[in-house]
């Protein structure tokens, strides 16, 4: 390669870099003016956990509040919080640990409502080996955890609380399929009480096996689940719009979980989840109702400040964040 060709190649490479950079910046989203359709990114795919969101959209609650809202499903590869900062979404659903982790890295977020008052993340187990009435009963069991996810943090907190050491329980790394649990290789399996637990319990009950749920909240660990989040920018620039959105959303949730509207709610669920039998959907809806609107609990949408404080403390203790993030300052209830 002679000097001239080398120079030409370097120029060509520099031109390419410039083109790529220009395209990247040009393709990035600009700040939204919040006119037109609002994007609402859910935490998970459409199922009973998002019935209120679907109901608010399908039954015109957003439209009645003068809003055009596009409800988009979430999933493992989607991150509502990232989309909020990038401007792809205006509102999103995330669990407290996700929010705290994002705030710890400087994400400007505001939590405006809390959907689940009781965390649906629990552990399913067969009662054959005895009921788990105290944390000590976990000793000697094989516990499924998803390394890196919030169930790992919760379980480690519970074990630390009970002074249960490494050798006293065995961990099993949980993946997509339930085979290890169904085959009895794992004693406790992390599930969402209102979705996976329902069909797994149904399956096992038909096989003559009795099951129960291990609920971390019963042992004093309140780890906050699905909450509605928006960007600090939108919250500051247009609080009225945020208020209208939260009002319409919570009205939708309230109606969806009202026994009077069960038929309509089930019909909406059926449209997005054709494979789950109706009786399972009905049970899922009933359990969701108890988690979102517990009988003696606070009003729908209430932000559990103590729960958030505890979640932050647990994450700090477990080394998930390096320093306190003062999460309470990000909680702005819009009820």
């Amino acid at each position: 390669m002679n000097g001239k060709t080398g120079k030409r190649n370097s120029l060509l490479a520099a031109a390419w870099i410039l083109i790529v950079l220009t395209l990247a910046v040009a393709g990035a989203p600009e700040g939204r003016a919040w006119a037109g359709t609002l994007n609402y990114r859910l935490k998970w795919i459409y199922n009973a956990s998002v019935i209120g969101d679907l109901y608010a959209s399908g039954k015109g609650y957003f439209r009645a509040a003068g809003l055009e809202v596009k409800v988009r499903p979430g999933g493992p590869e989607r991150d509502a919080l990232r989309e909020l900062e990038l401007g792809y979404a205006d509102f999103g659903v995330a669990s407290a640990d996700q929010v705290i982790r994002a705030v710890a890295k400087g994400a400007p977020l505001v939590v405006v409502a809390q959907l689940f008052q009781v965390n649906p993340l629990q552990w399913l187990y067969r009662t054959g080996k005895g009921m788990i009435r105290k944390l000590d009963d976990l000793k000697g069991r094989t516990i499924g955890i998803t390394y890196g996810k919030n169930d790992e943090i919760i379980m480690r907190t519970l074990l630390a609380k009970a002074g249960i050491g490494r050798g006293q329980v065995e961990f099993y790394s949980v993946r997509l399929d339930y085979t290890p649990f169904l085959r009895g290789k794992v004693d406790l399996w992390p599930v969402y009480a209102n979705t996976q637990a329902v069909f797994l319990r149904d399956k096992l009950s038909r096989a003559g096996e009795e099951t129960a749920l291990f609920v971390p909240g019963d042992f004093g660990v309140r780890f906050v689940a699905n909450s509605v989040v928006t960007s600090e920018k939108l919250f500051k620039r247009n609080p009225e719009l945020v208020k209208r959105f939260v009002g319409a959303l919570l009205a939708g949730w309230k109606a969806a979980l009202d026994v009077k509207h069960q038929k309509e709610a089930l019909a909406i669920l059926r449209q997005v989840d054709r494979d789950t039998p109706l009786r399972i959907l009905k049970t899922q809806l009933e359990i969701t109702r108890r988690l979102v609107m517990p009988r003696s609990g606070p009003p729908l949408g209430t932000i559990d400040f103590e729960g958030w404080r505890q979640t932050e403390r647990i994450m700090l203790e477990q080394g998930q964040i390096k320093a306190p993030v003062k999460i309470l300052s990000c909680l702005k209830p819009m009820l």
Binding site: I17, L21, A24, E85, L86, K105, G106, A107, P108
Partner: peptide
């Protein structure tokens, strides 16, 4: 080059370390 593109986006759009 990939890192450079990401950093240009970060500073161009003032994105947090989370994104």
């Amino acid at each position: 080059l990939g890192i450079l593109v990401l950093l240009s986006l970060k500073y161009g759009l003032q994105l947090s370390d989370y994104v």
